[in-house]
Design a protein around this nucleic acid. Structure first.
Lengths: 341, 341
DNA sequence: GAGATCGGGGTTACCGTTCACAATGCGATC
DNA sequence: GATCGCATTGTGAACGGTAACCCCGATCTC
């Protein structure tokens, strides 16, 4: 049965023989509704195929059941996977998701994106903006707007969920050192990304802890292209036996460069990546890498955000209960082996 | 200056010394407002930092300035890039974007996703659901909901934007035949994807046109894993000199398999992919592939959708002016060469 | 010069929900 | 037996806009 106009509360109320307010109560799980009335309303809802109008809800209540996600360059695996994770968690919690991508992460861009989302009366925002440039923007979000950030340094201004980059990097480096490599080179991502910082710190800490020399740091831009270039430079040396790349794409480009130069992986040089992109297992050779659980990141973001939203409504203090740091794990494949000697 | 509560039309009206309706007129570019009044209102808007509330707008008018995007739950490059393209185009047009990903593409899932978006009173939806299973869902969208689809076969039910898969596949195959290969094998994506159909058709057509034998079709699932498996099978034969893979990830997995088996690319076997993912240029060897312009796809989707929304408001007929077929282009790199003989 | 037309702008209702508060019924209390 | 308290339900007013309609004064038409 197709209706011209979708049913509204009043239709449901009439059918169930109650007032519109009672319908609203049932819909929002208000405690004081008798069991029989509740059932009658639910039957009417089902019968009419009623779905509450989110706009009206957002207007009447202070907040909608929509969360906003501000994201940067969603073609990168990390941000894309995080977005997907947040979206899944949000929908599970009964929330819709509105997105706003920014071309560059600077304060005006992030402000304008959150502004656009605020205009839609989103209940809160998740900011996936892992560059340090976003920090300034994050520190002064519109007042009263619940927000959480992924991989950000907000100085405690807003809750942050992140993967333990330092631990991940240490795992990668320690794995290589354990195999017998004297030291490990590192090709980092852009210096203004927070992940980059953590991975550099972990890399250096692991080397220092093992008493290994710390080679000069190389910097890429996450792309396979930059990995390729760095690979060419390393190939020109000849004393390199192990490299920890800041992400899988750069590892991939580097392997390609080594291949072109006749350097075998892992026979001549071992390589470890970061992310565990779906292709990592099918490169030649399959890439040893550090896996990040983006779904978990998404879930924790939503959990933290919902807590903020809830606290906001109850005027209570927001305690952050969930552990904001997600542990990565090392996935050992065939791009790493003992040095040739 | 931070205000406790954001300004609303009435605040602007009071400051400008006009009625709230006049403010509304200015905001919606209504013709009958004098130049001086308009300016006064705009000044007040700026001064108060007023931003219209999208919820209220959506409630009052029939439609919001938000478009919904239904996308298949995946981190695949194509859908992700298309989503980004649509999002960019939408924001340029002053629209917000709400997303709803579905785990599986079947009728209930797509219906429920569009339902969730309809609940948010989106002005229209873009469906990125390139499987044939989505067809049924697309044919009976909620009445009156403007919608466009990407890579779908809707039987004319709703406008569709797509990349010319057949032409892309022909370019790939013809390129290989021109190099001197006797025939070209094809590893397709899942059979229930529309892109897969087009690429198979183009592949077969090009072979038939050239009078080349048509090898048995191989089917993968877009993943590097399936490419790897197919590569192993092909390697076992030994009479294969050229393969056209349905996407770059499968091409990647296949190259990896050939590498393991000691088969050189392109010396022993030539490979062409599809998509031109960012990594394609940095594989070993750099991958020859067919590029799709997803940004253009996104732009055309929004253009078509806006036309529908507009027509809907004016009750006029919706003419589709823009060319719904986007041309792909062949990017020749080093994974293809003349056969060894 | 009177009625019609038109540009500009105000009034009021309404969109579909939630919130604040009032009202009702009923058993328990004193 | 009247009062109190609680659980349950109803009533009216927001929420922040847009749409439809009305009104006013000025110009145009004859």
């Amino acid at each position: 049965m197709v209706q011209r106009r979708p049913a509204v509360v009043y239709d449901v109320a009439r059918l169930a023989g109650v007032s519109h307010q009672t319908v609203s109560r049932v819909l929002n799980d208000h405690p004081s509704v008798s069991q029989t009335t509740r059932q009658r309303v639910l039957d009417a809802v089902r019968q009419l195929g009623y779905r509450p109008n989110a706009m009206a809800r957002g207007l009447a209540g202070r907040r909608s059941r929509i969360v906003g996600v501000v994201s940067f360059d969603t073609l990168l695996y990390g941000p894309a996977a995080t977005l997907l994770g947040v979206e899944r968690a949000a929908r599970t919690a009964g929330y819709g998701v509105s997105i706003a991508t920014v071309e560059r992460i600077d304060r005006p861009a992030v402000m304008s994106a959150t502004g656009a989302l605020a205009e839609q009366s989103v209940a809160g925002v998740v900011v996936i903006a892992p560059q340090t440039a976003a920090t300034a923007a994050l520190r002064n979000m519109p007042a009263g707007m619940p927000a959480v950030a992924v991989e950000a340094d907000t100085g405690g201004a807003i809750p942050t969920i992140s993967v333990n980059q330092i631990a991940g990097a240490r795992m990668a480096v320690e794995h290589l050192l354990r195999l017998g490599h004297r030291t490990v080179w590192h090709l980092s991502g852009p210096r203004d990304w927070l992940e980059t910082r953590g991975r550099i710190d972990g890399w250096r800490a692991a080397l220092v802890a093992a008493g290994s020399p710390v080679p000069p740091l190389m910097t890429g831009d996450w792309s396979a292209r930059s990995g390729h270039e760095a690979g060419m430079r390393l190939a020109a040396r000849g004393d390199v036996t192990a490299v920890f790349a800041g992400n899988d794409q750069m590892a991939l480009g580097m392997m390609s460069a080594f291949h072109e130069r006749g350097i075998r992986v892992p026979d001549d040089v071992s390589i470890v990546g970061f992310d565990d992109i779906p292709e990592a297992a099918y490169l030649s050779p399959p890439l040893t890498t550090v896996r990040q659980d983006f779904d978990e990141v998404g879930r924790r973001c939503m959990a933290a955000l919902l807590r903020l939203i809830e606290a906001d409504r109850l005027e209570g203090p927001a305690r952050s209960a969930a552990d904001p740091v997600v542990a990565p794990s090392l996935v050992v494949r065939h791009s790493t082996a003992a040095p040739a000697r």
